[in-house]
C-alpha cells in the first residue's frame, strides 16, 4: 500500500477545507440553525410531539442526515472534479497509486469533513433543543456508513461530471428532494397509506429511519432493514467505483 500517497491526498483535501472554512463549516451550521428556527420553533410550536418525541428533537436526525448527504456528495465530487478541471489529475494518474488508494484518499477526506460537519450540527442542535442518543454506537455506525456511501456517490459524480452544472445537478435535483421527501421533517406514518408505500422506494428513508432509531428508538422501517439498505447502497457505489477504475471511464483513454 502507498500510505504516503493516501496521506498526501487526504491531507491535501483536508487542507482545502481549512482554506474554505466559511463554505465548509460555517455555512451548514448557519443553515441548520435556520431550519431549527423555522421548523423547530415556528412549526414545532404547532406540532408538539411526533410519536412521543418533541418535534424540535424529532427533526435533528433528519437535519443531520440532510447535511451529511449534501456534504459527503459535494466534498467528494468537488475533490476529484477540481483536479480534472484544472488538469492536475495527471499527477495522480502518473503516481504509483492503486485505484483503491486514490479512493481512500479522496473519499476518506470527504467523509471526514462530512462527519465533522455532522457532529458540529449535533452540537448546534443542542443549543436549540435538549435531546439524548439512545444507541450512540449505532448512531456512529450510521453516521460513518452514510458518509462513506455518499462520499463514494460524490466521487462517482465528480468523475462523471465534465462541467460544473453536472456537478451540481445530482445533489440539487436528486439528493435534496429525496432527503426532504425521505422523512427528514416528518414520520412517514403521517402520510396517507398510498404515499407511505411510494416513499419506501426512496433510499434516503432507510438512512433517516435508521439514524433516528439510534436517537429515539423510533423508526419508520425496522433498523435491520435500514442497515441492510444502507449496506446495499454502499455495495452498489463500491461496484460503480470499481467499474470506473477498471475501465478508466472518463479518467483514461
Amino acid at each position: 500500500m502507498n500510505w504516503y500517497g493516501i496521506r498526501a491526498i487526504y491531507r491535501f483535501e483536508m487542507a482545502r477545507t481549512g482554506r474554505t472554512l466559511m463554505q465548509s463549516i460555517a455555512s451548514p451550521v448557519v443553515s441548520t440553525s435556520l431550519y431549527f428556527v423555522v421548523f423547530g420553533s415556528a412549526i414545532g410550536s404547532r406540532i408538539t410531539s411526533v410519536e412521543g418525541v418533541s418535534y424540535a428533537a424529532f427533526i435533528i436526525p433528519g437535519l443531520v442526515m440532510l447535511s451529511l448527504l449534501m456534504q459527503s456528495v459535494s466534498n467528494a465530487s468537488f475533490g476529484i472534479y477540481f483536479p480534472k478541471f484544472v488538469g492536475t489529475i495527471y499527477e495522480v494518474h502518473s503516481a504509483p497509486l492503486s485505484f483503491l488508494e486514490i479512493v481512500l484518499g479522496y473519499v476518506g477526506a470527504a467523509a471526514t469533513k462530512a462527519v465533522i460537519v455532522g457532529l458540529i450540527i449535533l452540537a448546534t442542535a443542542r443549543v436549540f433543543v435538549d435531546y439524548s442518543i439512545a444507541h450512540p454506537l449505532v448512531m456512529i455506525a450510521f453516521l460513518l456508513l452514510t458518509t462513506i456511501t455518499f462520499s463514494l456517490l460524490g466521487f462517482i459524480i465528480g468523475i462523471w461530471a465534465d462541467n460544473f452544472e453536472k456537478l451540481q445537478v445530482v445533489p440539487l435535483m436528486v439528493i435534496t428532494p429525496l432527503t426532504f421527501l425521505g422523512g427528514s421533517f416528518y414520520s412517514i406514518h403521517m402520510l396517507p397509506p398510498f404515499w407511505q408505500k411510494v416513499t419506501l422506494f426512496n433510499p434516503v428513508v432507510y438512512l433517516i429511519s435508521g439514524f433516528r432509531w439510534s436517537f429515539f428508538d423510533l423508526a419508520d422501517v425496522s433498523v435491520g432493514i435500514s442497515l441492510a439498505a444502507t449496506l446495499a447502497f454502499l455495495a452498489l457505489c463500491l461496484a460503480a467505483v470499481w467499474w470506473i477504475f477498471r475501465t478508466g471511464y472518463k479518467l483514461k483513454v
Binding site: 502507498n2 500510505w3 504516503y4 500517497g5 496521506r7 498526501a8 491526498i9 491531507r11 491535501f12 487542507a15 499527477e91 495522480v92 503516481a95 504509483p96 497509486l97
Partner: peptide, 13 residues
C-alpha cells in the same frame, strides 16, 4: 505544499 504533496503521492516519506 504542492511540492511536498507530489513527493507524498509517489510514496516517499
Amino acid at each position: 505544499n504542492t511540492v511536498r504533496f507530489s513527493r507524498g503521492l509517489f510514496g516517499k516519506a
